[in-house]
Write a protein that binds this DNA or RNA. Sequence first.
DNA 1: CCAATAGTGTCTGTTAGACAATATACA
DNA 2: TGTATATTGTCTAACAGACACTATTGG
Lengths: 244, 244
Amino acid sequence: MPRSTKPPLPARRPLVTVDIAALTIIDGRPHVLLARRPDAPGEPWPGAWALPGGFVDVDADASLEACARRVLRERTGIDAQWLEQVAAHGGRERDPRDWSITLLHAALVPVDDTRQAGGQADHVRWHPLRRNGRPKGVKLACDHGRLVAEAVARIRRKSEYTDLPVRLLPEPFTLPEMQNVFEIVLDRSIDKKAFRTRVLAGEMLEELDSARATGKRPARLYRLRDRRQLHVFRRALEGGDAAA
Amino acid sequence: MPRSTKPPLPARRPLVTVDIAALTIIDGRPHVLLARRPDAPGEPWPGAWALPGGFVDVDADASLEACARRVLRERTGIDAQWLEQVAAHGGRERDPRDWSITLLHAALVPVDDTRQAGGQADHVRWHPLRRNGRPKGVKLACDHGRLVAEAVARIRRKSEYTDLPVRLLPEPFTLPEMQNVFEIVLDRSIDKKAFRTRVLAGEMLEELDSARATGKRPARLYRLRDRRQLHVFRRALEGGDAAA
DNA sequence: CCAATAGTGTCTGTTAGACAATATACA
DNA sequence: TGTATATTGTCTAACAGACACTATTGG
């Protein structure tokens, strides 16, 4: 069959990478996981901090989510509890090597699992975030500063009307602990009573028999009924940005 | 420089396509724009209905959004008023030719612009949607049935707490017309007073001096202050699916 | 005047915010 | 018992739903 009758597959294909903005809370402040780019010749942005990412491997990856989990595990040793696609960005100028697309993901890592990343020595590190969602005091490779801010914005916005931030806590947890991570993610204080009423009415928590002694009156312990199932509240918290 | 010191670009790259689920309302019912796949030898799913889509063209496209707009225009003659990314899906089994990724987009097309697509004869056609968000009476190529449902679900969910559906109306429009498209998108009736209060309090509408005579009492005409700016309401309409 | 459509008044229920009050632990 | 933390009670405001009511047009 002559080649000219073949279907018009494109002559050139874009590079496709997956980048993961893994978020956690350390010392009461949000952090993002960054990796140092290799110094090898030909590598773009040698030595710069960047989101952990990698190319889609058509031999190894069954799906894009599988790809993201593999990349995160291989580069940082972390298995994310929560992982979601945020957006795709593409263009000619992103990567000097070729027209490239990144599939940006956001991941939430409970404080407990934070140390998994420590083993990778100096090449992987948690960096604190500013209130605007950008890493403090580091210039990131490529457009990764923007990407981090975009992922943080997505998580923040969704935290206004879902129980997303619980994924930053190891189980079991207390309601004050839960309120605390919400306040850190949303960067504002929340009324105690309103928060408790809202959360308990949501019925996504399982009440345990035990309690945790924090020094004074012990707080009751809870667990999520289904860690994969996001609970969507009927009303958003107020004071939120109302931005699209 | 020896090849082995070059940065590890992947040996094989996935196919990357953009698919667009363009939605409109015809005769009071939601429709999706479908295109017939070419019959040429080697083409997958010859003759089947599918979402209009195409490969990312690294020479022609400056960005993914530009790519989606180009593809939609070239394949259907339509310039969408509203276009947003919905999700990326990838896998080995999607396209028989290779591991492929689709960047799924949703587009909203005002009723007025619907005829632009008619010019393309039999290869492009508006198909009515079932209540479950799938096209009625057609089997779609590949996983496009699922993609249509996913795009519709996204638009529906966002319509619970934003003014998104107005993008299905040509300007100017009346409040009863606006309520009507909301009811069609959400597939349920909405209380008149609640809807008007909500919308007018949102202050995203510009009140015109004129009115439209529909036969009986004329309705006041409105226009969006900014068609690109999505208005986010503080509370969602009730009765919505609280699903993630 | 009648029919039909546009628009308003008013009541209720829900739930977030404010903040005071109570409960339970340890020292 | 005192103090710190957890948990609850109560009031208010905002706003969606229900639904009856009024307003404005054409015939």
